[in-house]
Write a protein that binds this DNA or RNA. Structure first.
Lengths: 218, 218
DNA sequence: GTCTATAAGGAGATAGAC
DNA sequence: GTCTATCTCCTTATAGAC
């Protein structure tokens, strides 16, 4: 699973976020900003206030530098958005590349994807959160929306396969099952926080509920 | 159920939206704007572009009048937002007032609420969609978020009751069931459109899936 | 009620000194 | 790399004529 190399991105730092550019032993005394750590800062701000409501001034203040210094590292607001959405999409599409997502009976592949989707969602929380809130105002946003739709379509066709092969009971239309499945899984971004008590076995819990019911009759 | 008195709010009108102020037979020749129809227009724009990305210029253009004429009817952007969110919240909290939501075994009350929530979601689609996207940047947004949380908390405590009374099998923690339940139901706003084929029995279908599983083993 | 014109401030982004 | 100062455009909102 992809870990967050920049550290927790869910908390806006109170001090400047700097990463070290090591050049050898004894020479690591010049901490500098890099584009990666600024993306981390920006994503946290975007998720707090919303992308459109977050100004470059907000971002530079959160990073602890002036607005024009901030521009020395990134070309603009949209570049930050794109980098963040790229990371979220890489995490999600990476799941589809996994062997367990490509081989075996549809239902098993599907449940593997669901389980892994929950894992990526929690490990890449700020990035996926941002992705799920994109509206489509710019080219970058429309690109992300299209990629997201492609991911959902893959899952939906797997749901259809699992039903047509008789592994899943067809209680409703396949597309509706796929929609509610995605809706339930994606909604995790709205409340999950790292270290949240009771969420240690979230992937298994989610799989159990989509299989056996969220409110199964006793 | 509350019907939309202002007509379909999901389509931005190409011509000015006017409502008639009747003063008697033969005197209905002066169509005027009213705050209600402007809210309808505004909500459609907010849902298309996002609240923050929608300017008063956008709104007035969608209504077919100039920006300053628009200001003659509403005090500002936030008033429009508040009116829309109020309507969404009224729809949701109205459910909790219904007899079937207040009397009987917890599971039956819960399933009634789910069914009705799907109905309100679809009948008041643009308003609820807007509500579910609110981030919390202004007092109005924070008020809406708090009210929404209160609604969710009511549902969550009903889930807990249904489990502790043995009507629902406790496969996971009650709060997790409640979260996924809300997530699945609320996600309907992301794809449902009035008249959508296959969604004629949406409330029943949703109840069936949360009870028996979205992907029940055959 | 509607309009044009404009005020007042905030936005993204750049210039150029240090 | 960082800063202050500034440009230009867009935003909310109002003034005042018709």
């Amino acid at each position: 699973m992809t870990a967050a190399p920049d550290g927790p991105a869910d908390r806006a730092p109170s001090r400047p976020v700097r990463t070290r550019r090591g050049r050898g032993p004894g020479d690591a005394r010049r901490p500098v900003y890099d584009a990666g750590s600024l993306v981390t800062v920006a994503v946290a701000e975007f998720n707090t206030r919303g992308y459109d409501a977050t100004s470059m001034e907000d971002l530079s203040r959160a990073a602890g530098i002036s607005k024009s210094s901030f521009y020395n590292h990134v070309s603009g607001k949209e570049e930050l958005l794109r980098a963040a959405l790229q990371r979220a999409l890489d995490g999600l599409f990476g799941i589809l590349e996994e062997r367990a997502a490509q081989n075996g009976p549809p239902l098993e592949r599907l449940l593997h994807i669901v389980r892994r989707q929950v894992e990526v969602l929690t490990s890449e929380l700020p990035y996926v959160t941002l992705l799920l809130r994109v509206r489509g105002n710019t080219d970058t946003e429309r690109w992300a929306l299209a990629r997201r739709r492609a991911f959902d379509a893959t899952v939906a066709s797997l749901v259809a396969d699992a039903i047509s092969e008789g592994q899943v009971r067809a209680t409703v239309q396949p597309w509706l099952a796929a929609r509610l499945l995605s809706g339930a899984v994606n909604s995790i971004t709205e409340w999950y926080r790292p270290g949240r008590a009771g969420a240690e076995n979230l992937p298994d819990d989610v799989v159990r509920m989509v299989s056996g019911g969220i409110l199964p009759s006793a």
